[in-house]
Simulated scan of single mutants.
Amino acid sequence: MNAEQWNALYPVGTPVFAYPGFRPEDDRNARRLVTRTRTEAQLSASGDPVVWVDGEGSYICLTHVDAVSESVWQAAKDSEVCGAREPEPRTGTSPCVLPAGHGGLKHQDKWTNQWPALPVPVGDQPQPLDDEVDADAVAARAAQVISNMGGEIRELTHQRDRYRLAWQSASFRAEARGEGILRVVKDRESYQQWLKQAEARVAELEAERHTTNEALTDAAETLRANRDRIAELEAQQPTLCGRTRDISGTEYPPCELRADHWQAYCRGNGGRSYFLSIASNQPTAPTEETAS
């Protein structure tokens, strides 16, 4: 089970059986803690899912922590015994079966074998002990000191791992933040490049529009000039004679000569019809003098 799955199932304060060293199936003398979790599960520096429990300074791997029900936990707590072992065990001795924290001067196993416990001082000064008890007490004290040293070592190891986790977390956050900054910078550079391309395209379209406007202006000027020329040419078109009746009253196609023509005859139908028309003010033929 990984840390995420454990946290989803078991909140902080869950009753557990924890095994700081070996599990009982691996070592029949394995130490069991009837305790509760005091943190959420997380990854240690080595990458293992771990959790901290009450009564233990260092973390314990989740493979060595069993969640139990409140009733099972309470029953185990009620039946919990001291469990201390003789510093130099004799043949046939077993762990102390007295209640945990019994505070007696001697431990006792299930065979009623006894050995000295850590002496408890009475009053302001330590009470004197006989030589045998004093020697046993020194040995017990040495064992206790060694045990305490082990606890301190575990606590230091726990602190070291905690600092490692904090460092890794800070490192991951810094790395993620750095990647985020790089991504923002990259996006900003992309936006700037896109903006430059857009500005270049706008300038290109404006130049194209200017060129188009100039072409339209030239075309409009050309149209105006052609219109004026057409009007000028139309104004220069001579008015045709258009007479259709000759002096005898016969009808002919309209005369195609100029209205002020000097000829005595009219001509129509593409020059195929000639006739003398009635002209009230027929111009006379030009003389040599007027022709010149």
Rank of each mutant, 00 (worst) to 15 (best):
M1Y: 05
N2A: 02
N2M: 02
T14Q: 08
P20T: 03
R32L: 13
R38P: 02
L43V: 06
S44F: 11
V51G: 03
W52R: 10
W52I: 04
V53E: 00
D54H: 14
G55P: 02
E56M: 04
D66A: 08
S71R: 15
V72S: 10
D78Y: 03
G83E: 02
A84C: 08
E86R: 14
T91V: 12
T91D: 14
P99A: 00
G101D: 04
G103I: 06
G104P: 00
N113H: 13
P116V: 13
Q125T: 13
D131H: 09
A139V: 13
R141Q: 08
Q144F: 14
Q144I: 04
V145K: 08
M149P: 01
I153Q: 15
E155N: 10
L156D: 07
D161S: 10
R162N: 13
Y163C: 10
A170C: 06
S171G: 06
E175A: 10
G178D: 09
V185F: 06
Q193M: 07
E199Y: 05
R201Q: 12
H210F: 07
T212P: 00
N213I: 07
N213K: 05
L216C: 08
T217W: 07
D218A: 15
A219N: 05
E221P: 04
R224V: 04
I230A: 12
E232F: 11
E232A: 13
E232L: 11
A235T: 07
A235C: 05
T239Q: 14
G242N: 03
R245M: 10
T250K: 15
W262Y: 13
R267Q: 15
G270M: 05
S273N: 11
L276C: 05
A285P: 05
A285E: 12
P286H: 09
T290P: 01
T290C: 01
